[in-house]
Amino acid sequence: MQIFTCPFCGPRSETEFHFVGDFPKPRPDGMAKVSAEMWSDYLHNQNNPKGAASELWMHMACHEIFRMDRHTVTHEVTGSYALSSEAQS
C-alpha cells in the first residue's frame, strides 16, 4: 500500500486519496466554440505516462486538492505541493 503525503495533513495511506486528473489539465471553456475533439480529449484522455507523472489528487479527509509528482513504474512519490489560493483555470 502506498503512502501519499497531503501537503496539509502529512503522510497518509493511499486509501484516503482520490485521483482527480493530470496536472495541469485546463478545462476548455466556451460551449460551441470548443470542438468535439477537444472536448472529448478533455473528458476521456489522461496522459497515463510510463515514468514521471504530475497529477492532481484529493485528500478525502480534508478535501484539499494538491499536486503530486510520482513515478508510475516504481511508484516512488517525488513531491507533493499545495495549489495556490488563486483560481487555477
Partner: peptide, 20 residues
C-alpha cells in the same frame, strides 16, 4: 456533491472567496 463542489471550488474559484 460535497466533493464535486470542492473540486470546482479549488479548480476555478478563489479559495478565500468561497467556502463549503
Amino acid at each position: 456533491v460535497h466533493t464535486m463542489l470542492e473540486s470546482w471550488r479549488q479548480d476555478r474559484f478563489s479559495t478565500d472567496k468561497v467556502f463549503i
